[in-house]
Design a binder for these strands. Structure first.
Lengths: 94, 94
DNA sequence: ACGATAATTATCTTTTCTGATAATTATGGG
DNA sequence: CCCATAATTATCAGAAAAGATAATTATCGT
């Protein structure tokens, strides 16, 4: 019943750049440097930093620093929250 | 590759009231009158009207009028877009 | 210590979203 | 026709999000 976490997760998924980050992270094996992520977009790096924070506050990614680079990791456990929510919408298979 | 529809769907899901509408519609068998939906919330009816329009523009619901009441229906085909998106995130089962 | 690189934080403007209230449209019943 | 009901449209103020730019922190190599 803690809907706050759902609020954050779905708010995080609302922006196309943030969804792109998750998908790309997935295809890169779940881990990428911040700069590598930022270079995917037209917008400037600080925007990406902010998107990453939104994703992290939603629990969808986490990060770890090694020297001056920060590596962001996908957090599959939280992606499953979305599956859970969707699951409410289909009691019998489809 | 038409990401515009994904943009609308995920933006629609970003608001808790709109997610609530979808869930409730589902449990009510997929159809409810606008007033019945509006009465679920603290906020005034015009807010609900707007939420319903956002959901409809995302293709998640549609409506039909009978007399002076409007009945909103869930559109399961569009809910599946979310499944599709999530599906990208897990190539092998889980 | 110095300069280059990686990344974040701060700040500001513009746009979009939310929520409230008032006005409007349209239908149904007497 | 008149009044009540169902619902939407219009409008406005405040909150939040997006995007750009500038400044800052921290680390690496020399």
């Amino acid at each position: 019943m803690d809907s706050a976490i759902y609020d954050r997760v779905f708010a995080a998924l609302a922006h196309p750049a943030r969804r792109q980050i998750l998908i790309t992270l997935h295809f890169e094996g779940g881990a990428m440097g911040a700069g590598q992520i930022a270079r995917m977009f037209e917008h400037a790096w600080p925007m990406t930093t902010r998107h990453l924070r939104v994703l992290e506050e939603a629990g969808l990614v986490r990060h770890e620093r090694q020297g001056r680079t920060r590596t962001y990791h996908l957090n599959p456990r939280h992606i499953s929250l979305v599956w859970d929510w969707l699951g409410q919408m289909r009691p019998a298979g489809s």
